[in-house]
Design a protein around this nucleic acid. Structure first.
Lengths: 293, 293
DNA sequence: ACACTACATCAAATTTTCTGATGGAGTTAA
DNA sequence: TTAACTCCATCAGAAAATTTGATGTAGTGT
């Protein structure tokens, strides 16, 4: 036989109303129904909750603890019932978001934190992918919102452009390339290039991102790449926002590359045209456009 | 109509067993009883938990959230039932402890922390009083265990002596008294004495603690007293352990008082002989004797 | 001592939950 | 494509849990 909430509600009422009969009135029951529930609870727990030796029933120490724990339980049960009210008020139960790891995470996280502070009931699942991996995950249907840097266009998407993100071609200050001027592609190709592994299977982009040298090291994310760069392992593109400190302290320096050492990505916030976003998704888009856009 | 745990148990079983019929078997019910519970829950929440359009019922997003929240609720309910098992295994539901504020709090707190780490279910209420206030609170019956420095003996007590605590008569290094040698009582009485307010109504002790000068400042606790001492407001007794840093840094210095500038208290751990302690109280005594004793 | 309050107890009424049988719809495999 | 099967809904009646209303015992207060 397992615990049930009704007994706990009765227990709580008895204590707060100060007696069995008064609790009964509050709960729209009779006094004997209250007696019954309390006795049932006592049986289930195998311990007395009230000391009946005196005129009025008094809580035992055990009863006192069960009361406080029980009231917490009731409150949490209340929370669960309340959840669906919020769902029917338009807040989706869950929202999955795929983000390119190159996006500045601070802004995103601060928005998510605001979401928590506002007690928005939606559970947000954040997933970080790289380059093609973002769209791939989105297409697979796991996520309803994606924040990507590059994507294969489709008329099934609703696209919101955000503020461009600047990337720089950098090396460690003590790397050989740091001292060369007007670097050619040939020169670059003689050194190790560092790049973040595209997290899609396809890897169908290529393009200007890599230089096609013989030695390319693939790192798992930008944090690893930044470490490898500062260690002087090679050169590579990095989003400006992630290496501001290293540039300021001159640990990393911008390459003087003929082909250009700066590049701007325009990040986009995409959701499906056919599948309407819930309130949390809309809220998130608004907030991100406001801060990133 | 309010939430009930049975429906949640059924929901959980349906999902974990992968079907209504299998859940029914696990719960020793029939399949129609499972249907009934699920439908009841859906009605109560006012939302579908399963999508029945396909062959097998599939959780809706709302259902998924309710499931996870519900399972948490069940686990907490389990915890409540489990509590009484622990109570009947000898762990008292609550234990109140009165401690003299002069006791080194670190040791005590580390023991309490260990208690939490061991998942001892007893709720400990710690109350700090001073001098006579400790015993008074204990006598009033609120607490079952007291850690006092001085007390009125009684044969109703079980007394455990702990390691003596040393107190010193000190002033700030820049106080006039700091430069006087072989101080007499007269001299002392011309300065401000700092003392902690006895938290009993009675204040029935007096004795060597105060010097009976004209100007005595009463502070609310030893933290305040230490501050007042280091500010040079006056002189007074302090437990050694609380002013080790100030002595080392020479902010505070020991007085050279004729009547002696050191005094040892023997703290005692007392519980009532008639009212047996629960497992937590015994555990606490053992641990405190081990560390303090 | 008298009226009153607090809670327990019991049989009967009522409500909730379960069972067992049935049925429609999708699935599987020959 | 059919036959056998699984999944779940539904319904009436059975069983169980809960509530009621009446009554009883004991303590309170005046």
């Amino acid at each position: 036989m397992a615990l049930d909430l009704e007994s706990l509600r009765v227990l709580s009422a008895v204590v707060s109303e100060g007696g069995f009969a008064k609790a009964a009135e509050k709960l729209n029951k009779t006094q004997s129904a209250v007696s019954y529930q309390i006795q049932k609870l006592e049986q289930r727990l195998g311990a007395d909750l009230f000391d009946r030796s005196a005129y009025r029933a008094e809580l035992t120490p055990v009863g006192e603890r069960i009361l406080t724990e029980g009231e917490r339980l009731l409150q949490q049960a209340e929370h669960v019932s309340h959840l669906v009210d919020q769902f029917s008020a338009g807040w989706e139960p869950r929202l999955e978001l795929v983000v390119d790891g190159m996006m500045p995470s601070k802004v995103l996280l601060s928005v998510l934190k605001e979401m928590v502070n506002l007690n928005i009931p939606t559970h947000v699942q954040l997933r970080v992918e790289y380059l093609g991996g973002v769209q791939q995950r989105f297409e697979r249907g796991d996520a309803e919102l994606m924040l990507a840097l590059a994507y294969e266009p489709s008329n099934r998407y609703v696209v919101n452009a955000l503020k461009p993100v600047e990337t720089l071609l950098v090396v460690a200050a003590d790397h050989a390339l740091a001292r060369v001027n007007n670097i050619t592609l040939d020169t670059l190709q003689q050194h190790v290039e560092l790049t973040v592994h595209d997290s899609s299977y396809l890897k169908a982009h290529g393009g200007w991102q890599t230089f096609g040298g013989e030695r390319v090291f693939y790192l798992s994310d930008f944090r690893a790449k930044r470490e490898a760069l500062t260690m002087g392992l090679g050169y590579g593109w990095m989003p400006m926002t992630m290496i501001q400190d290293e540039l300021d302290s001159k640990q990393l320096v911008e390459l003087d590359y003929q082909g250009g050492s700066r590049h701007q990505y325009t990040p986009v916030l995409i959701n499906r045209r056919d599948q309407a976003l819930g309130r949390a998704g809309q809220w998130l888009i608004e907030r991100l456009l406001e801060r990133f856009g």
